[in-house]
Amino acid sequence: MIRTIRALAVVLALGPVAAQSQTPAALPPGVFAAERDVALASAGAYTLDEQHTAVIVRVSHIGYSQSVFRFDRARGSLTWDPAAIETSKLSASVEAASITTNVKGFAEELAGENFLKSKTFPEATFVSTSFKPVDRTRGRVEGQFTLMGKTRPVTFDVELGGAGKGFGGKPRIGVHAVATISPQDYGLPALFTDPIQIQIDTEFERNQ
């Protein structure tokens, strides 16, 4: 009987602690978590949040593996309407010289005249021509992609990350987008024989 009473006392004592540990930490005032609902990003003009953007390029290392490069500086604008997604418009650019790699000294070579020629062509750009929803969280964005002065049509497969009130109540939308380009279409060296994959994770915040 005594053992039973002691066990019950331990359970009662630990109960509030256990319940407290399962309660998620509260967000700071004015910060709102995202949800998987595009309607939470209301219609309007949005600007790309460079601090929450990753532009990743996956390139075949002459067939042995996939080399991963990142571009650190990007800009963009989005005209968005969740009630008429097909009318939305996107324009974005990436600074070619902002490429990074974990191979010492290689980023400078990639930005140079043998590869991206960033002094002559400082930016790669994408301008949408159509938004095509697939379902409530996925779609395709078709557009014109320009690299080293050459422009070709490219389609990004886009998936919603989340949408919501963001910071300070300003609507925000986050997406993951993937496209593939042919290096020969843009005049890259013959060393690049396989298609190059572009992966983008980014957030847009409404201007007002």
Rank of each mutant, 00 (worst) to 15 (best):
39 A>I: 00
81 D>E: 03
11 V>W: 08
1 M>T: 14
36 R>C: 01
121 F>W: 12
172 R>E: 04
179 A>S: 14
203 E>N: 01
149 G>M: 10
107 A>T: 08
176 H>Q: 13
103 V>F: 10
206 R>T: 12
128 S>V: 02
21 S>W: 14
193 T>L: 11
168 G>L: 04
198 I>P: 02
179 A>F: 07
13 A>L: 15
23 T>P: 00
90 L>I: 11
150 K>C: 07
194 D>W: 07
180 T>C: 01
62 I>G: 00
21 S>N: 05
151 T>G: 11
101 T>S: 09
81 D>V: 06
168 G>K: 03
38 V>K: 14
76 G>E: 07
83 A>E: 15
157 D>F: 14
83 A>I: 02
152 R>Q: 15
60 S>R: 03
61 H>E: 09
6 R>A: 10
91 S>T: 15
89 K>D: 12
14 L>I: 07
201 D>G: 09
3 R>C: 03
177 A>M: 10
89 K>W: 10
151 T>K: 06
186 Y>K: 01
72 D>W: 05
28 P>E: 09
52 H>E: 13
118 S>L: 05
53 T>E: 13
95 E>Q: 14
110 L>T: 08
24 P>Y: 07
51 Q>G: 15
131 F>L: 01
89 K>Y: 09
25 A>N: 01
202 T>Y: 02
183 P>D: 11
143 G>N: 09
5 I>D: 05
17 V>A: 12
90 L>Y: 09
3 R>Y: 13
157 D>Y: 13
177 A>K: 11
161 G>H: 05
136 R>C: 06
42 S>M: 05
139 G>I: 10
99 I>F: 01
149 G>F: 13
202 T>C: 14
64 Y>I: 15
120 T>P: 02
163 A>R: 07
68 V>S: 10
48 L>N: 12
106 F>Q: 08
52 H>K: 04
49 D>P: 05
11 V>M: 11
16 P>G: 07
207 N>Y: 00
205 E>M: 10
124 A>P: 01
148 M>D: 04
54 A>D: 08
159 E>C: 01
175 V>S: 02
200 I>A: 10
22 Q>R: 08
194 D>R: 13
68 V>T: 14
62 I>E: 02
180 T>E: 15
114 N>L: 13
67 S>H: 05
104 K>T: 10
41 A>P: 00
73 R>L: 13
5 I>R: 14
51 Q>I: 06
80 W>T: 06
177 A>S: 15
49 D>V: 11
151 T>W: 05
60 S>A: 05
8 L>R: 02
44 G>T: 07
119 K>F: 03
160 L>S: 10
15 G>D: 04
52 H>P: 00
152 R>T: 08
86 E>D: 14
86 E>G: 14
40 L>N: 04
189 P>M: 12
